[in-house]
Design a protein around this nucleic acid. Sequence first.
RNA 1: UGGGUUAUGGUGUAAUGGUAGCACAACAGAUUUUGAUUCUGUUUGUCUAGGUUCGAAUCCUAGUAACCCAACCA
Length: 557
Amino acid sequence: MSEEKSLNFLEEIVESDLATGKHKAILTRFPPEPNGYLHVGHAKSICLNFGLAKKYNGKTNLRFDDTNPVTEDTEYVDSIKEDIHWLGFEWENELYASDYFEQIYQFAVQLIGKGLAYVDDSSSEEIAAQKGTPTQAGTDNTFRSRSIEDNLRLFEEMRAGKYADGAKVLRAKIDMASPNMLMRDPIIYRIKHAHHHRTGDNWCIYPMYDFAHGQSDSIEKITHSICTLEFIPHRPMYEWFIEQLGIFPSKQYEFARLNMTYTVMSKRKLLQLVNDGHVNGWDDPRMPTISAMRRKGYTPESIREFCEKIGVARRENLIDIGLLEFCVREHLNRIALRRMVVFDPLKLVITSYPEAETEMFRCEDNPENPDGSYREVPFSRELYIEKDDFMEVPSKKYFRLAPGQMVRLKSAYIIKCDEVIKDENGNITELRCTHLPETKSGNDTSGIHVKGTLHWVSVAHAVHTELRLYERLFKAENVADAEGDFKENINPDSLQVIATAYAEPALKTAKFDERYQFLRKGYFCLDKDSNEEKIIFNRTVTLKDGWAKENKKVSIT
RNA sequence: UGGGUUAUGGUGUAAUGGUAGCACAACAGAUUUUGAUUCUGUUUGUCUAGGUUCGAAUCCUAGUAACCCAACCA
């Protein structure tokens, strides 16, 4: 009894196209512009394009949309390729729109020959003015009626470098009165005497998106060209060019881009965060980029699962970032190695425990994954526990340590708090406790049940580490809708560094490809800034904290 | 007073004229040597107004709201 998962609208289209024989196989493409790093919104598109092809035994090309040399760079090309691979996808061909520059140029010549394109000498302002407004038709200018011969010669001269940037453009001759602003004789070629990261100085004219994207799709025989909603008005143009050129009829389909609470998703804004130093680079773990998520400890599996869960549709959406966190917790819970780390230490002395003794306790690596794997954790007379695991005057429902109260130390003994030591200012500096030897983990013969279990680290064996705790980068749930500039909504407390935390010895040999759960605290991974002297961990995500919620309720009532 | 697109619980997403389902969130409880995980249960929805029909989220009519379009960006 398998539950059929319903298809999204694109899967329906593909199944129909395959069923009717319109296509024998499907070919999709992922078309990033190499002018920034990929973010989780791109991950949605990647999962869609590669996932759709995979599901229906098709293929996907990676094609860089590199038609604007002034903003693009190979640095971005490299990062994009790395991110796609990391997410777990393989492209059929690595291609570039710039590979087709000569072909696209010939397409333009073809259009001119048919009297469907013309060279316009107008300035950018003039062109804008002649374009009209949404409620007012545009007007034809005199260049519109240039002869085919003149247009052919002028366009050739543009290519030859005879004119300065902005002196002339090539425009498609469509309809200056179209209700669709984009159809009012769109510019298809502009002059840019700029060095291109792949074609070097071969060209000084470059095609616009609308005269490169559909053409590239067609050249590659892409069957389903999937893009976001804002390209809907471009579709008539996409189809017009393909029809006039008489080339392979790729079809464009649009879906709603991903928006997420407490974050921004536009490359422009992300670039600004980087350039203005609000974050430390594209892979700062607070960023929504793929590289940042990787550094923060997210797994490809969890991102793919997230993209699966959010679905694909054509309506605007604002996804709760909590769903992303749910997905990564779900995966990390299964694979993360359990370790104990004390963030904010309070010294605890077990007066009943021999001073010179050290016991090794066997602790499971992951209770969810009972493969028997475990590590040894040293226990001794002096330990660290978390400050907030002790309350001198416990509130209702607090079942951690308090004077006269008992708790279990995870994988060790049940202890009882006998005495609270304070300094001259009344600050608690140390706890004196006694342990119950018969409650030893695994051999508990006491029959005693305690409600609280604490993590701990032996003082003498503690490994000093740095912890980087990340919160949401923005304070506003819907950053786009929030008042003022988006930067005014940056959360000033998005990064908290704990310079010295105390970790159990097993973390001395932490590895980059492993994921850890610091018991009762959260999921962590080794940061690339770690070195011989300093071990640094990033918090991927906290554990769900039922006590924090309960505590809030208690303090309100 | 232009064109295009979209409206289903708090957030997403199904139901293709026939029991409004699923996930996250929230809430309540059970289990727990992680206040985690796991398990059980509960609350909350078809933009509005008419119409067609035995029956409408779905079809029709009229509204309303939101988003996109006037870069030599993609």
